[in-house]
Design a protein around this nucleic acid. Structure first.
Length: 310
DNA sequence: AGCGAGCCCTGCGCGC
DNA sequence: TGCGCGCAGGGCTCGC
């Protein structure tokens, strides 16, 4: 479940079950789901079997579960189980003995001091997502690595990912300045996870619609106030989607219990081509951009007058 | 620096 | 009914 709200739904659902839980058994059913792991499946299995997990953390679309060192009183975790859902990944929490389903790629038998024996299944149709055990490093700004924990640590493979707009340590002024220094179109910038994380194709289109900005509007042409306005709209749409449990179009995008979110009913631009713009009544159109669909209202979000210099 | 293309994959719904 | 095609919410690497 790709974008920030959907990933947060997963983190939030996982937290009570995995925090303090011990991994009793790991099974890798498809090694392709370990493409981010630096080593063979045996290494992944050996290092995680018997490990105790602490509270899961999310930054943008990445979630990780730090592995406690000893009984946890000796110091900070040094490594973490990193999860990226890609386009079609799910993490499902099941009771032991439940059927795996054909798309289960990795399964964990865990035991929690309070909730007992559970199953954590990593399910992924397209295998664009993956899991990995990765080394934690200190955050350069000393703030928490992400949402869900106060540990100022981040996995190496997530270190280049920017903080997301819902992160208390997100630096608005720095973002506005960095965005305006870019020589690119606004949607491309929103989707650049090294600039701001957690935004994907759906919420980019929704936020741009809300801010009345065309996807190809040059970032350098945006006044500071417009960028701040856009950032506000990004936060609004992410927060609203989160409240509604994320966006689900089908059974592929579900929470840890397999339930769908409701935000698809609230979309104003994404997937609304041919329908009336809820603001001006004009027709929403869909165009191919960056090998993806871009949805917008040509009347509210007029194309920039002059194309950016090539 | 930034961009387009290619790549990693499977399964769905559509039109013929 | 069956088949081929286009579509899908991400991100990484490469060469220009």
């Amino acid at each position: 479940m790709p974008e920030l709200p959907e990933v947060e739904v997963v983190r939030h659902g996982l937290a009570p079950a995995v925090t303090g839980a011990t991994i009793e058994r790991v099974e890798v059913l498809d090694e392709r789901s370990l493409k981010r792991h630096d080593g063979p499946a045996e290494d992944f299995i050996d290092r995680l079997t018997g490990a105790r997990l602490v509270a899961p953390v999310r930054r943008g679309k990445f979630v990780w579960m730090p592995v406690a060192v000893g009984d946890g009183s000796f110091g900070d975790p040094v490594e973490a189980l990193v999860v990226h859902l890609g386009m079609s990944g799910q993490v499902l929490l099941r009771s032991r003995g439940a059927d795996d389903g054909p798309l289960t790629r990795i399964r964990f038998e865990i035991v929690h001091p309070e909730h007992g024996e559970l199953l954590v299944n990593f399910v992924d149709q397209r295998i664009f997502g993956s899991m990995a055990l990765d080394v934690l490093q200190a955050t350069p700004d000393g703030a928490a690595g992400g949402y869900g924990s106060s540990l100022a640590l981040v996995p190496g493979q997530v270190a280049h990912i920017a903080r997301d707009p819902l992160d208390p340590a997100f630096d608005d002024a720095a973002f506005v300045a960095a965005l305006r220094r870019r020589r690119t179109g606004i949607k491309r910038a929103l989707l650049d996870q090294t600039l701001v994380s957690g935004i994907g194709n759906i919420y980019a289109d929704e936020a741009l619609w809300a801010a009345r900005l065309h996807y190809d509007r040059p970032t350098a042409s945006l006044p500071v106030a417009r960028v701040r306005e856009l950032l506000t709209e990004v936060r609004v749409v992410l927060a609203r989607a989160l409240e509604e449990g994320g966006t689900s179009f089908d059974a592929l995008y579900v929470n840890v219990n397999g339930a769908s979110g409701y935000f698809s009913h609230s979309l104003r631009a994404y997937g609304q081509q041919g329908k009336a713009c809820p603001r001006c009544g004009g027709l929403i159109v869909r165009e191919q951009f960056m090998n993806r669909g871009s949805h917008f209202c040509p009347r509210c979000q007029p194309r920039p007058r002059r194309r950016r210099a090539a």
